[in-house]
């Protein structure tokens, strides 16, 4: 008999980070296995079914969704980049979760700012949030400001 499933919707932090579904799956499995153990994760059968637009949907067996959501809260990196998952909702269908997804896109074109000696690309988001990403190719430092903080500098 086919087991009942639950789907967990989580938002990916920081905003604008492109996460590969496969890498996200590895992070979910690592976090769940280290927190709950192989046996519990084997029974929960977690899988990443969707990873796009700043959101991730994790599938698991019904009854294990609380444990998996707890494990998602312990994720600190995805593909060696700092990241976090914030659980938004749990549902029995992906369709219901899609209604909860609100795309998070930068408000305007990226600007530039200097903090200390370092140059950052500025991304503005709703609610006066400003993310500064160090200019570079890999493992860039990020700073999280607000519009007011940026104006004060």
């Amino acid at each position: 008999m086919r087991a009942k499933r639950r789907y967990i919707l989580a938002r990916i932090l920081p905003y604008g980070v492109a996460v590969d579904q496969r890498q996200a799956y590895f992070s979910v499995i690592e976090a769940a296995t280290s927190l709950l153990g192989d046996a519990a994760v084997g029974l929960a059968q977690p899988a990443v079914v969707f990873c796009e637009g700043g959101y991730i949907v994790v599938r698991c067996r019904r009854g294990t969704e609380k444990d998996i959501a707890t494990a998602l809260a312990t994720i600190t990196t995805i593909a060696d980049e700092r990241a976090a998952l914030r659980t938004v909702a749990t549902s029995g269908t992906i369709h219901a979760l899609r209604r909860r997804m609100r795309p998070i896109r930068p408000l305007s074109e990226a600007g530039e700012a200097q903090v200390g000696e370092t140059y950052f690309t500025v991304y503005r988001y709703p609610r006066q949030k400003v993310d500064l990403v160090e200019k570079g190719i890999k493992h860039q430092k990020s700073l999280f400001f607000t519009e007011a903080d940026l104006e004060e500098r």
Partner: peptide, 18 residues
């Protein structure tokens, strides 16, 4: 030390249940 390390009240509850 970062917004990425902040957790929601619901997540705090589930982590403390551990």
């Amino acid at each position: 030390r970062s917004i990425m390390e902040q957790r929601s009240v619901r997540e705090v509850r589930s982590l403390c249940a551990l």
